[in-house]
Amino acid sequence: MAKQIIIAGGGVAGIEAAATLADMGHKVNIIEKGSSSGGNAVRWHALFPDRRPAGEVISYLNNRVRNKNIEVTYNTCVNKVRHHGSSLVINLSSGEELKADAFIVATGFDLFDASRKEEYGYGIYDNVITAPELEDMFNGGSLYTADGRVPERVGFIHCVGSRDEKVCNHHCSKVCCVTAVKQAIEVREMLPGCEVFCFYMDMRMFGPYYEELYREAQEVHNVNFIRGKVSEASNTINHKVAVKVEDTLAGRPLRMEVDLLVLMTGMEMSATGASLAEASGLRRGKNRFLSVRDNHMHSNNSDLPGVFYAGTCTAPMSITDTISHARSAALEVNLYLSER
């Protein structure tokens, strides 16, 4: 008899884990809180480092999820998972109770709410936007300020909500640096007359071809990099945004006006994942993401038998790493079920 697996979350990790298990002949039920699958990725226009259209990955996932062994339940959250005899009992927000042989948490991440960094005036100053909002503009094919001007200068603030004790996030969200570089290049290509500035603390180009993209941004696209964390943004009389930053490499404060200020919002443990973890006794780390059983050898395992983790519910990850992590979660589940 086919084993029943339930996955919380129908984003990149959830779908990839489900499809890998379905290919092995298992029955999978994805419980997705939203009304469609794909998670945070569906909002993206293009992906680093090669800037392929994000739609290609989304259609790959859509094809993967169309499998006779996969059922997706939308507009529903998993509230709790617990052991009952030899199987798992999963409580849904609909009040329904499901039985499963294995369970994968793939609840992903929430984007940091940029308005919590009050000093940047997000939600107050019209021309302060977030990275996903810039992706929306790329998807729309045009780039304007709130008052309809073609921007002549765009600034990117790295580490918004990451590496910042003031918002209780000590962790690095990993993908924002390279996303800023990618977006900076896209702005330069879309508007060749527009100057672009990245305000960064460190450039964390951890993945293959990320460093090369950074170099390309400087060499080919004339993107400017200023090392320093922006301390405050304010409105000017001309509806521009004035930023204050230390040019740490010059050792002096620097001020400049930009037409559009993009906040590179980081990743936080998703609220739905957090409440599932609290209700089910799943251990979380100081960064509030789920703690894996072993950082090196068992990064898909929880402390509970039959409960596994996939993707950014454990830590910030790129899509590449999320897909790999989801596949390895599927392998772990398969191994677990075959040993029972």
Binding site: S115, E118, G121, G123, I124, Y125, D126, N235
Partner: peptide, 10 residues
């Protein structure tokens, strides 16, 4: 300038 943003902070 969006005053709702300020009102939320206030």
């Amino acid at each position: 300038m969006k005053t709702e943003g300020k009102k939320r902070i206030w």
